[in-house]
Computed example of a mutant assay.
Amino acid sequence: MDSPFRLLFVCLGNICRSPAAEAVMRALVEAEGLAGSITMRSAGTAGWHSGKLPDQRMRNAGQKRGYNLSSRARQVNENDLLDHDLVLVMDRQNHRDVLSYDSKSQFSEKIRLFCEFCTGHKEEEVPDPYYGGEQGFEHVLDLLEDGCRGVLRHIREQRGLTQA
């Protein structure tokens, strides 16, 4: 059996967007019966929140939609580029920051903007909801649900996965 396809979602602090993407993707993968074929993690480009749970407002918004945001924040590192098949960043600044870990420019093709996989939304970046109100967290979840469906289609095409 092939090794699982390994996804990494990255935002700034790893307490809002990327852990929510991880939770949305995990729920989608489990619902499709692909838990053994796709793994996912999240990380932040900054380490301020390392070890902490996701922001309570994002956990509340996710819980209303049935998502469990329970991962602990951690900072992205050089090994993440080697250890993951696809690194999805939430905005252009995250993209620049993650590319800075790729000193030999060998991983740039696997570091992509998350919104490239959205089909129902026109945004090019997932906005950081941290300083906004409740609607910002809902909008982020809308984008993540859209994009995660696109990511799953991409992985299915790459790996030839069928629904279990």
Rank of each mutant, 00 (worst) to 15 (best):
R26C: 02
S103R: 15
C16I: 07
R74E: 03
G51W: 07
T39D: 00
R65E: 11
E22T: 11
A43C: 03
N94I: 06
S105F: 12
T119F: 10
P54A: 10
M40Y: 00
Q63F: 12
F107R: 01
N94D: 03
Q106H: 11
R65K: 15
E109Y: 08
S71I: 12
N94L: 04
Q56K: 13
G33Q: 06
Q93L: 10
L99F: 06
S18E: 09
M58E: 00
D85T: 10
Y101A: 09
G66W: 11
E78D: 15
R41P: 03
Y101V: 06
R92V: 06
S71P: 06
E123G: 02
L88W: 05
A20W: 10
Q75W: 08
M40V: 15
N14C: 11
M25I: 08
P19C: 03
Q56C: 02
S42D: 04
M40G: 14
L82K: 15
T119K: 15
I111W: 09
D102Y: 08
D83T: 12
P54I: 00
R72A: 08
G47R: 02
L28G: 03
A61I: 13
Q106L: 14
R92M: 06
D91Y: 11
A27L: 02
D55A: 09
S100F: 09
R74P: 01
V76F: 12
G62K: 02
G36M: 06
C115F: 04
A20K: 13
L53E: 13
S37W: 11
E116V: 01
Q106A: 03
P54T: 06
L81R: 05
R17E: 01
N94W: 00
C118Q: 02
A46I: 09
A20E: 03
V98C: 01
V87R: 05
A31C: 05
R112M: 07
I111H: 05
H121Q: 01
A35W: 05
V98Q: 04
D102I: 03
E32G: 03
M40R: 09
R65H: 14
F107G: 01
R72L: 14
S70M: 09
H49N: 03
Y67G: 06
H84Y: 07
M90K: 04
G62D: 01
Y67N: 11
W48E: 12
M25N: 08
I111Y: 10
S50L: 04
A61W: 09
N77C: 15
A23Y: 12
R112V: 05
G66R: 03
G62N: 02
V24T: 08
R74Q: 14
F114H: 02
F114G: 00
R17C: 11
G120F: 08
A73W: 09
L99V: 04
G44V: 03
N94M: 08
G44D: 04
H84K: 07
N68S: 15
F117E: 00
D85L: 12
F117M: 05
A21D: 06
N60W: 05
L88Q: 00
L69Y: 05
S42R: 10
C118V: 06
K104P: 00
R72V: 05
S103P: 03
H84V: 05
S105W: 09
S42A: 01
S108F: 13
S18K: 09
R59H: 01
P19A: 07
N14M: 12
L81N: 05
V29N: 07
F117Q: 01
K52E: 15
R41K: 14
H95R: 14
S105L: 12
R112Q: 13
R17G: 02
Q93M: 07
